[in-house]
């Protein structure tokens, strides 16, 4: 197996165009496991760690452009206030060592239904930037995932960045079930965003792909008392939980049962809505 180390994005894209079988590697927290277990034998590895621009982020116009190679630890430290939902999800990834290496770009590259950042990317309405020698395109996260560990990424493309709205007065929550209290693959997970009369809701590990729950989003947009500084009625939380639970399409596996996943997502829906609504009212009041 060849180890290709491009110094620039341009060089990397040229390599990927010539050798679409080359597997990009940044932190290596997924790819190396696959190689070590011999689940994958790529002809070449394309090391992205020398491409400085992939490991940077910038903010402008209410958006953060997060380089695909920024490790979780930096994201948590540097963008915890700007992208609170993504930071919450990032804190649940693996161990400190894994968070020092792993990246959102890698999470997207693997496109596992259990990937921790996906529900947040879907809920906040992130766009994924894909580049190739042919050019650059931006795909809404909703359109990115196409199946279990599959995405719209073309063989000659690299994931270069993710664009996310700065939270501002939005309330963002992420919640994940695991069978131990740290360092665990999601049994199921949920991302929730409340922003300016709109809601974003997405679930992970509960369907073949990470999934937005449009019905629940529309319900919240229509039914939340956006201009009213009151706690939410239980009936509203219950209905929201039902809509989230109804959107699941889970399986039984060694990590949990389908029934449990559906049940737990209903509970998480209720709780995260309560927290997000409290945060939202708080931040709106603070700005008023």
């Amino acid at each position: 197996m060849e180890f290709v180390r491009p110094d620039s994005l341009q060089e990397a894209l040229a390599t990927k165009a010539e050798r679409p079988g080359a597997v990009p590697i940044a932190g290596g927290t997924d790819v190396m496991v696959e190689l070590n277990y011999d689940h994958r034998r790529p002809e070449a590895l394309l090391d992205l760690t020398r491409i400085a621009e992939l490991a940077t982020w910038s903010a402008s116009g209410g958006y953060v452009r997060l380089g695909a190679g920024v490790p979780y630890t930096r994201l948590i430290d540097e963008l915890g206030d700007t992208l609170p939902g993504l930071a919450m999800a990032s804190r649940t990834v693996g161990s400190p060592q894994i968070r020092n290496r792993g990246t959102v770009g890698g999470n997207l590259g693997a496109a596992s239904p259990a990937g921790d950042t996906h529900p947040v990317l879907l809920a906040v309405g992130a766009e994924i930037e894909l580049a190739s020698a042919r050019g650059v395109r931006r795909i809404p996260a909703t359109d990115f995932y196409t199946g279990v560990k599959r995405s719209v990424l073309e063989p000659d493309e690299l994931i270069t960045a993710v664009l996310l709205p700065v939270a501002g007065t939005a309330a963002e929550q992420f919640s994940k079930i695991g069978t131990r209290n740290a360092m665990v693959i999601a049994v199921c997970s949920l991302g929730l965003v409340l922003r300016d009369g709109r809601a974003g809701v997405a679930i992970g590990s509960a369907a073949p792909t990470p999934r937005r729950v449009s019905g629940a989003e529309e319900f919240l947009a229509a039914e939340l008392p956006w201009d009213d500084d009151a706690p939410l009625p239980d009936s509203l939380k219950r209905r929201f939980a039902e809509l989230v639970a109804a959107a699941t399409e889970p399986i039984d596996d060694v990590r949990g049962t389908a029934d449990y996943r559906t049940h737990a997502l209903g509970v998480l829906a209720r709780r995260t809505l309560t927290w997000a609504w409290d945060d939202y009212r708080g931040s709106v009041r603070a700005c008023a």
Partner: peptide, 16 residues
């Protein structure tokens, strides 16, 4: 959160 069931996975703030 680390003192609660679920830890930093943020599954409860004391509920349940």
């Amino acid at each position: 959160l680390r003192s609660l069931p679920g830890g930093v996975s943020n599954t409860t703030h004391g509920e349940g």
